[in-house]
């Protein structure tokens, strides 16, 4: 399949009200399907809201066909693929910020957020467990990867997904807007768009970013979801600060055209990278110790 009719849903969640948010998911799925989309991407924690704090444990779900929240989503995924954001409860009662890719009634992939910002206005590390895997996965549209917000503020997770074969990277965010200047957009919006465009260009891949809108107490979420193509060209941008369902068709043949012109993937020296990384991480006396 060479074309991917894609939809991005940016909306304001109800904080801690999974049933209300589930209804929004199902109605967006139906709307996107009617408009011809075959994959619908939701923001980070789209089923729960973002600043959950002590609510985190009570809204957690197991991504499973028997779960009352996932059952209708899996049903909906029979007619349109979905990426949904939720709090994942695992067997041993650790709670993760996760996104699940659902297709044809199956859970294809679950990504657990690997970078939990715990600085400034963020306190995720206090309430959530750290994911510890970054894996690409196969879909009916080709190989993809999922990252959640802070995951892609670090360069290594997108890089790993690229090497793991992902050609379409799905980024889900609940990004609180901040930073004033004379520019007509917030500094957060400028920064996120810059790095998304850079990833698209550096990895000659599609970068899909979906960010929520609305408020939680005084935090504003700025929307502005984007899609960049393998040339780094902007294919779509949803409006800032308002709910929207944005449709855009990805021409997957662009991967061929761009990489024929610019063989960055072919020439990437992974063995060199791996060797040097191993050297840097070796704990020589006097060298900085880097985190794991």
């Amino acid at each position: 399949m060479n074309r991917l009719p894609l939809a991005l849903a940016q909306f304001n969640t109800r904080l801690g009200d999974v049933d209300a948010n589930l209804d929004r998911h199902l109605s967006y799925a139906e709307q996107a399907r009617r408009q011809g989309a075959e994959l619908l991407v939701f923001p980070e924690l789209s089923l729960t809201g973002y600043a959950l704090m002590d609510l985190a444990v009570s809204v957690a779900r197991r991504p499973h066909a028997d779960d009352p929240t996932f059952r209708p989503l899996l049903q909906a995924s029979k007619s349109i693929d979905l990426l949904v954001g939720f709090v994942e409860a695992e067997q041993r009662h650790r709670f993760y910020i996760s996104s699940a890719y659902l297709s044809r009634g199956e859970i294809v992939h679950v990504h657990r957020k690997v970078y939990l910002p715990t600085y400034g206005l963020f306190d995720e590390g206090r309430f959530f467990a750290w994911g510890d895997a970054v894996r690409a996965f196969d879909t009916r549209f080709g190989r993809m990867g999922v990252l959640i917000c802070e995951d892609f503020w670090h360069a290594s997770p997108p890089y790993l997904l690229w090497l793991d074969g992902a050609d379409v990277l799905l980024f889900a965010s609940a990004s609180p807007g901040r930073g004033l200047s004379r520019e007509p957009r917030l500094e957060t919006a400028r920064w996120v768009e810059q790095i998304n465009q850079a990833y698209a260009s550096l990895f000659t891949s599609f970068i899909v970013h979906v960010n929520r809108t609305g408020f939680e107490d005084g935090l504003n979420f700025w929307g502005g979801s984007t899609v960049f193509d393998p040339d780094g060209a902007l294919l779509a941008r949803a409006p800032y600060h308002e709910e929207a369902l944005t449709l855009v068709e990805l021409d997957l043949e662009q991967l061929h055209r761009t990489r024929a012109r610019l063989p960055l993937l072919r020439d990437e020296r992974t063995a060199l990278m791996s060797r040097e990384l191993a050297r840097i991480l070796r704990r020589d006396p006097g060298s900085p110790t880097l985190g794991d």
Partner: peptide, 25 residues
């Protein structure tokens, strides 16, 4: 980096604050 400035884009701030008031009330 540009030196810090107190200058704002009034339309952006106005938009956010009006949404804030309407949503949160």
């Amino acid at each position: 980096s540009e030196s810090p400035s107190l200058e704002i884009h009034p339309d952006l701030v106005r938009r956010i604050l009006i949404d804030f008031l309407r949503t949160e009330i």
